[in-house]
Structures are given as structure tokens and as C-alpha cells.
Design a protein around this nucleic acid. Sequence first.
DNA 1: TTGACAGATGACTGGTTAGTCAGTATTATA
DNA 2: TATAATACTGACTAACCAGTCATCTGTCAA
Lengths: 278, 278
Amino acid sequence: MKKQLIMEKAIELFAKQGFEATSVQQITEHCGISKGAFYLSFKSKDELIIEIIDHFMIQFTSEIDHLVRSAKDGENLLYNFYYAIFNSFQKHSDFGKILIKEQSRSFNEDFIVKMRYYDRLMDKSILSMVEHLYGDDEVKEIKYDLVFCIKGFMSMYSQLFLFYNVPLDLDLLSKSLVEKTNLLARNSTVPFISKGLIMAFEEPVLEDLTKEQILLRLDQEIEELEESVEKESLVLLKQQLNEPTFGRAIIKGLLENIRNHPQTKWIAYLLGSFFDQK
Amino acid sequence: MKKQLIMEKAIELFAKQGFEATSVQQITEHCGISKGAFYLSFKSKDELIIEIIDHFMIQFTSEIDHLVRSAKDGENLLYNFYYAIFNSFQKHSDFGKILIKEQSRSFNEDFIVKMRYYDRLMDKSILSMVEHLYGDDEVKEIKYDLVFCIKGFMSMYSQLFLFYNVPLDLDLLSKSLVEKTNLLARNSTVPFISKGLIMAFEEPVLEDLTKEQILLRLDQEIEELEESVEKESLVLLKQQLNEPTFGRAIIKGLLENIRNHPQTKWIAYLLGSFFDQK
DNA sequence: TTGACAGATGACTGGTTAGTCAGTATTATA
DNA sequence: TATAATACTGACTAACCAGTCATCTGTCAA
């Protein structure tokens, strides 16, 4: 399968020139394959970028999620969090460049929704880390601001080694940001971002999700899949969508079945947010 | 003159679709003029985006610069700074969107240089504000980090009202960020960004480094250092640069001597890549 | 009414793009 | 070795793009 090769080479080119400025021809030349071969691995250029985003962001977000979930002691968690983030960015700097360059791009609807989804996933992890670190009560008022500040630190300091090839002392950087975060968490008294404001930002995404749209995509997906656990899960989830019968646990389990399969990953997200919503 | 009209309509479209995804045809249709008329006002599509960037950034940076320069009292300065920034972003939200979307774009060399120039201008203003606010000595060590944090706050909180049309309380936002900035300025003890690092970012791209540029910086560094192993190493490396005499091992050792000193870390890197290159 | 001229037009050019498909090469199978 | 299946090729299409230019139009002064 040429998929791996194409993705690797495409990442290099996208990082250097941007997604839109890189043609499929260029990618295939860089791989030493023909243009037709590209379309054997990917349905379109858009599908390629989405698979790239997925490949890295699933790794990235699950690494952070695992870090936060499995943390016992407080102080090290924050350090490990920053270290892991910047370490990942440094290791996959080409992908990092793509992420920053194209993050607010609007060329493809699926792409935007995807990016927003991973952004939310990060927000969730950071928020639960903040609650874990400082106690739910202590930072109740300013925890959303804290999430924003942490993300601000991440994005600003990431740009340092993404756009200037300077070797950085990740240990010092993490320590420095741990101190800053602690300072803000323990001494801030003027919150700006309230729960209500946060909810306002989350609204638009879910708003667009109608049962019909999901059903449409669901049918389409079921059609394309061969017999498998994934397909069974989708069929059951379709039943649940039309007529709620299962409990929370079963739904969660079914979603888990399809979350790691590349073809159903996305529908898992859609269904997940739809069931959450209700 | 149709220039004004074209710029206004183009900003709307660029904000919505991005620069590359918007065609000249679309712009002229949106203006109700012919395609030819566009080229009476602008030599090219690139010239249009550069004029747009200039038009707003000149206003923006000079407003901030004036604010910082003419400030008498400390506390209000920071508040006014944040308020002015967010107020501008809110007033010209379409331009703000373009700025964020295209900031790290690489389609046009002139464009990148322009953006970098205005970025540096902002950095300068913020830095002189920080020095003014907290005293040159008090924050000597962490002032560059502070600049980064302030920019991080700006970019994160700007996205709030750029991408979700939520009416925001600029007064509260500014107060909240003033508190956060003060907390960091007065209590941070672990700097990450050193003078040397900052200078690294201002450096042209590494590949273009000439011997003369390195020598210039080397002299400067030797001047500033007191007698030490580091200084001796630098002097020897300067000799080596002018007239290669030492072997590989000695150079490596000398570089190692200066690699861990904060003030010479950067020059170590520069020299390292220069010697590697040959 | 005439003529001159700046301003405006839109068909056209040369080039690039994503995506297709009839056909070829390679490999597996019998 | 023959056949079938699979992987691959690259010329081709249709659409779109930035930018040009011969032509036209409305508005003046003479």
C-alpha cells in the first residue's frame, strides 16, 4: 500500500508550501509514483488532508487524554503535560506546521468540523487537568480562563520551534510554563470566561446536527461496510437513533467499537455528540 | 476611485473564504464591476492583499505605538493597551479574520516579509510597554517571556469574538488580562526566552548566514562577556572562522563549552550549523 | 455636433488544477 | 506456462484561474 508513503511525502510538502499551494501532481512526483496511483489510495486531495489530520490528532489527543486520566500526583502532571505537548510538536514538526498554517482554513466543511472536534477534545482534557490540579472548587470561577491561557502558552511557544529551527530546552520551557500556570491559577480573581460563554461557543457545531443528516450518513456508511463488528454496531446505533431502547452503557460500548476504525471514526464522533446532546 | 470599494468587498470575501480561495472574478462580481476594472486599481491580486494588510496594520501598530509612547501612568497603560487591541479587532473583525487565517501563509515572499515586519513592530511596542510598566530591572529576566504571554492572551481571546459572533464585555476582558499580566510580571522567576533566543528569531533564515554576519555577532558577544572559559572559547572560534587551523574535535569541544551558557547558546548554534555546512 | 479621452468592459489567452480511465505491467494462482 | 487479479500509468478532460487588450461608453470642451 502506497498510503503511508503518500502521507509522509505530502506532509513534507504541505508543511513547506501549504495545502492549497501543493498539487497532487507534485505529491506524486515527490513519491515517484503516477498520478493515478494517488487516487487508488485516496478518493480526493481533501480526503488525504483529513486522514493526515486524523492520524496525528488521534495520537496526540489520546496521549494527552491518557496523561491526564492516569495522573496521580498533581505537580508533575502539569509538567508532563507541557513536556509531552512540546515534545510531540518537536518530533512531528512538519505536521505541527500544517496544523498552525491550516487551522483556521475554510476550504472544506468536513475539515473545519474535524478541527473543531479535536480542539474541543483538547479543551476537555485541559479542563479536567485544571480541575484535577487545583480542585474543582478552588478554581471554579477562573478555570475556563485558565484553559484559554494554557492554550495561549501552547500556541505561542510552539511557534518558536516550528518556524525557527532552534533547538530548545524542553525541560526549562515546561518548568517555566508550570510556574506561570500555577501563578495564574492560584492568584487570579477576575474571571472573564464564564460557563455560559463557553457554552455559547459550543453551540453552533451541535446546532447543525439533525437526526436526518446523521441517518443519511449512517445509511451510506452501512452500505459501504462489509459484515463486521463495526457494521453490526452501526446497525444497532441506527435502531437506537430511530427508537431509543438501549441504555447509556450499551451506546458507549457500541461507539467504542467504531471509534478506532478509520472508516467509521467520523460517524462515531457525530453519533457521540448527538447522544451527548440529548 | 474604485479602490476603496474593491478593498472593502475583497476583505469581506477574504475573511469568509480565504485569500487563495477567492478569485478576482468573485471580487469584481461582488463589487458590480468588470474584471478589467479591477486591474485599473490594482496591478495584481497580490498587490491587493498587501495594500489591505498595510492599510490596517499601519493604523493598528501606530495606534498601539502612540498609546505606549504617550503613557504617563502605569496601571492604566496596560488596560488601555488591551482595550485598544480588542476594540480594534472587534471593529474590524473581517480584517482580523484575514490576519489570523493568512498569518502563517507562504504564498508570496513580499507578504511574509510584510507580516514579519508588523509582527516585530508589535513586539517592540509591547516590549517597551513591559519595560515602562515594570521597570527595566525588575523584569529584566522575564520580559521576553512576558511579551510572549501577552501575545498569547491577545491571540487566544481575539479568536473568541472573531469566530463566534458573541458580544463581549471589553472592559471586563481588559481588566482580567491586566490582572493576569501583572501576576506573571511580578511573580515569575523561571524565564525561558533569553535575549539570545530573541535575537535568533530576528535572524534571517539559517541557510543565508554569511561568515561576515556571524563574525559581527561574535565580536558583539565577545565584547559583552567578562573573562571566562566561554569568552576564551569564542575568541578561539573566531580565529578558526577567519583561518581554519583546528581539527574537528577541538571545534566540537569549544562549541560544547559555550552551548550551555544562556548568553552564548545561540551563537553556539549558529557556529555549529556554519561549521557543519562546510 | 464633433472629437478627444479617461474609464470601463468582457471575451480571450496561456496556464494550472483535480480527477478519470483505457490500457499496461506485475504478481498470484491454477 | 496460461490465466486471472491486482497494481499502476499517464494522456486526457473539464473547469477554473490571473491577467490582457481591442473595443466600447459617457462626458466633457470646442
